[in-house]
């Protein structure tokens, strides 16, 4: 298992799906562990009832069907698929509506889904998903990207209320890939995935949605920043170490 995760850390992020299915076939007895530890690109289904798309993950799956957050129905239909309690479903509906607006303001497009379910210790778990195709043939408004995808998975474990405060434990994964392609500079492709955790105990006065939303917003901002500055910055630094920019070279050149 350790070796398998080692491999997934080295395989090009754009080949994650192939890598995972290869590992699953080599290590069938570790399949549930692999599926829970390796984040895969998000798949989408269309909810026939309301004509909206929703995101598939382990958290809205029952047998081979997936529950839509819009109609609360399983696709393909499932007789006795598990559903959240009425009260939690109410929060889920609200979360989906608000998160769709949040998503639109930051992503200018994309698809989002929120799923909630009760857990064993009086709290609940919420999963916020976003998928955005930023390519010029997709929803990239500025048209810079030949290929571009941002996928975010935020899972929040919400503890029970204690003296007016609640503990939130957030685990976020962002998977990103982008390719630009033009005549003068060829293809330039960056891809990556990072995972971060955050713990917070906050008053419940403003409600779960407000607390979870702020946490996700802060986390997404931080992750976007580290991908941009740290991770892409490091690969840029590497390029400059391999072949330093010409100004540096010219200074060392005795002639010309």
């Amino acid at each position: 298992m350790e070796a398998a995760m080692g491999l997934m850390r080295r395989i090009p992020p754009k080949h994650i799906e192939t890598g995972l299915s290869a590992l699953l076939s080599l290590l069938p007895h570790h399949s549930s562990e692999l599926l829970s530890q390796v984040d895969q690109p998000l798949q989408v289904l269309s909810d026939m009832d309301c004509g909206k798309e929703f995101i598939l993950c382990e958290y809205n799956r029952d047998a081979d069907s997936y529950r839509s957050p819009w109609s609360n129905k399983y696709h393909p239909p499932l007789e006795d698929g598990s559903l959240p309690s009425l009260q939690l479903r109410k929060l889920e509906i609200e979360a989906n509506d608000i998160f769709a607006i949040y998503r639109d303001q930051y992503y200018e497009g994309g698809i989002s889904s929120v799923y909630m379910w009760e857990d064993d210790n009086e709290g609940f778990v919420a999963c916020f998903l976003i998928k955005k195709d930023g390519s010029k043939t997709g929803q990239g408004r500025r048209g810079y990207l030949q290929e571009g995808a941002w996928e975010a998975i935020h899972v929040i474990e919400v503890g029970p209320e204690e003296e007016g405060t609640t503990n939130y434990r957030l685990t976020s994964t962002v998977m990103l890939s982008l390719t630009t392609n033009n005549e003068s500079s060829g293809t330039f492709s960056l891809s990556g995935s990072i995972r971060r955790e955050m713990n917070m105990r906050v008053p419940l006065a403003e409600g779960h949605l407000c607390n979870m939303g702020r946490m996700i917003e802060e986390m997404e901002g931080k992750m976007r920043n580290s991908l941009d500055q740290v991770y892409f910055g490091k690969t840029r630094e590497m390029v400059c170490t391999l072949r330093p920019p010409s100004e540096v070279v010219q200074m060392r050149m005795p002639e010309s």
Binding site: Y107, G143, T180
Partner: peptide, 29 residues
């Protein structure tokens, strides 16, 4: 090769403000 390196640098410089924006904005609209 020098030109290519410069275009790589340009690709990196374009990331934060243009390329990345098509995926997720820094701030909402």
């Amino acid at each position: 090769e020098t030109e290519y390196l410069a275009s790589l640098e340009a690709s990196y410089l374009n990331l934060p403000d243009t390329t990345f924006k098509d995926l997720r904005r820094k701030l909402p609209v």
